[in-house]
Design a binder for these strands. Structure first.
Lengths: 130, 130
DNA sequence: CTTGACCTTCGAGCGACGTGAAGGTCTAGG
DNA sequence: CCTAGACCTTCACGTCGCTCGAAGGTCAAG
């Protein structure tokens, strides 16, 4: 299959696939006679794993490392590595959520002061406060 | 005062202050005889507003626009502009939080399957699933 | 024979900084 | 007087993960 089919099957753009290949994140695929990239089911699986790990928030290099373990039939190692990453990720997600909560409260406060036509209070919030 | 004092007073790094100046986000400050940047209280206030708007999640150019309105004593216009931005921001924050919730559930699921030494289930989640 | 949807490579751009080199300046201490 | 070190200056390149545009090749349908 060609690059756009791999792309739609894995939910990323053809440009992203080519970018991964250029960065060594994905191996160079076979080529058709006309020079087009030619992918098979194993490529789909590997790319799917990679994309899934990215969607979990793992960084690109780490996702690549784990996806290549999986492609080498070392799924146990992959699972171990992933488990290690998950702790950090869940902490990061919790922290991000706390930060968003804080931010939402701040936005709500500000919206109230502005809506109450109390620019002074808003200015204080922005300039003097804290 | 010099750049590092402005930086500590506003909670950003000296490099960030210089970056803002280079991008035209902050005006070029006075210079001391030795060439060092020389900031006054008005600069502190303007930078503080800018940083506060950034901390609310507004993008840099929009923050710059509003901060400059404020510095021109057009705080009413600034307040109006800010109020307009807030709606979009609160929506974005809510969406980001929903996404984080979804992600956290997914991470928890995966951690359970991996912890249960059920790599098959995990693989399905990553490769076949969805 | 042309249109249009694919594909190729290459290089640059995005946002918002961070980092490092290579050097100038000032202050305190020995 | 010398020196260490804590500032400051500019310039340019690195980060992360793509995304876009240009300039061209390939192929099936009409």
């Amino acid at each position: 299959m060609r690059v756009s089919e791999l792309a739609t099957r894995t939910g990323v753009s053809p440009a992203t696939i080519r970018f991964y290949e250029a960065e060594g994140i994905l191996p160079r695929p076979a080529r058709q006679a006309n020079g087009y990239r030619d992918y098979d089911d194993a490529d789909v699986c590997r790319t799917q794993v990679l994309v899934s790990l990215r969607n979990l928030g793992l960084d690109l290099r780490e996702s690549a490392r784990l996806a290549s373990l999986c492609a080498d039939d070392r799924c146990d190692d992959m699972a171990a590595g992933l488990l290690g990453q998950l702790r950090g990720r869940r902490e990061a997600v919790a922290a991000a959520r706390a930060e968003l909560d804080r931010l939402d409260a701040e936005l709500a406060d500000l919206e109230r002061s502005l809506g109450a036509r109390d620019p002074a209070a808003a200015s204080v919030n922005l300039c003097e406060g804290r």
